[in-house]
Simulated scan of single mutants.
Amino acid sequence: MSDRTTARNLLEQGGTTYAAQAGIKLENKPAPLYRLLVLSVLLSTRIKADIAVAAARELAEFGTPEKMRNATWQQRVDALGRAHYVRYDESTATALGEGAQLLLDEYGGDLRKLRDDDVRAMQRRLREVPRMGPVGVHIFCREAQAVWPELRPYLDKKALQGAEKVGLPTDPRRLAELVADDDLARLAAALVRVELEKDLREKVSA
């Protein structure tokens, strides 16, 4: 099987991003970018991805920094609870409120002002968001590359481990050549899934 065929199989069978799962139509606009940030914060904790995605859906009603800040702490806790995001619900509800205020203070609530051609500088700014860990930063950047070309190709260690498991190159630029630029975020998502899900690995390699 050629590398391009494997990459195509990956896109078909595992190329759904976390944002798409959470019902976020990702565009280079403040609201969807903020919702992706919230999702990345939720995925930063040691909790199942499906629960974090469900929690992001529940929090969609607070889909801008202003709405998140203005929501009561209890409203945020309740939204997390409906998704069974219960181990970290209270501390995360606090962090989301603090993060919304930070974004309003530093960037006027518009994450596009956080963009930078220096990816490391962008990562450092993302880490300033409360509860945003290294995992969340990688998730945000993997998915934001769909609308922020300066991030491409963003294929972190977990994605490259997935590539190795299905026999694809582990050099990000060589991997990027296998798909269209618009599909890089989906390829990254699929490669991470391959690393996490043995069944998908076997389907893609079949």
Rank of each mutant, 00 (worst) to 15 (best):
L126W: 13
L151C: 10
A146G: 11
R120K: 15
V147F: 03
K157N: 02
V135G: 11
L126N: 13
L160V: 03
R131N: 07
V135Q: 08
A163Q: 14
R124Q: 14
M132H: 01
V166T: 03
H138E: 14
A144E: 01
P134G: 06
E150P: 12
M132Q: 04
V137H: 09
A159P: 01
C141T: 04
D156A: 02
K158D: 10
G167I: 09
L160S: 04
L160K: 01
A121E: 14
A121T: 13
Y154F: 04
A146V: 03
D156Q: 08
G162A: 12
R131C: 15
E150M: 14
L168D: 00
A121L: 12
Q123I: 11
R120W: 15
G133M: 14
V119I: 06
V135T: 08
F140Y: 15
A121G: 05
G136Q: 02
L151V: 04
L168E: 05
E150A: 14
A144P: 06
L151D: 04
V147Y: 03
D118G: 08
R124L: 13
P130A: 09
F140G: 07
V129N: 09
D118K: 06
A159H: 07
V137W: 10
R142T: 00
E143G: 00
F140A: 02
G162Q: 06
E164P: 09
V129Q: 05
G167T: 07
C141L: 12
K165C: 11
A159F: 07
V135A: 08
A159Q: 02
V147W: 04
C141S: 07
Q161I: 15
P130F: 03
A163R: 11
D118P: 05
Q123E: 14
A146D: 06
Q161R: 13
R152M: 06
G167N: 03
A146F: 02
G133T: 03
P153T: 06
R125V: 12
M132L: 08
L160M: 11
R152G: 05
L160W: 01
A146T: 02
W148G: 01
A146Q: 03
W148K: 01
K158Q: 12
M132C: 09
L168M: 10
L155K: 08
M122Y: 13
V137Y: 13
R125H: 09
E143C: 02
L126H: 10
Q161K: 14
D156F: 01
A121K: 10
V135K: 13
R127W: 10
A144V: 03
G162W: 11
Q123K: 15
R142A: 05
Q161E: 15
Y154T: 06
E150R: 14
P149H: 13
V137L: 07
P153Y: 04
A146Y: 01
G162L: 04
K157Y: 04
A163F: 14
R124F: 10
F140W: 10
T170I: 11
Q161A: 15
Q145S: 08
Q161S: 12
G162R: 05
W148C: 00
V166K: 05
P130R: 08
R124G: 13
G133H: 12
A159S: 12
A146E: 04
V135E: 10
V166W: 00
R127H: 15
E143T: 03
L126A: 12
R142Q: 03
H138N: 13
A163P: 07
D118C: 10
I139H: 10
P149G: 09
L160Q: 11
G167K: 05
Q123S: 15
P134F: 06
E164L: 12
G136N: 01
L126F: 13
K158V: 10
A163C: 06
E128F: 14
V166P: 00
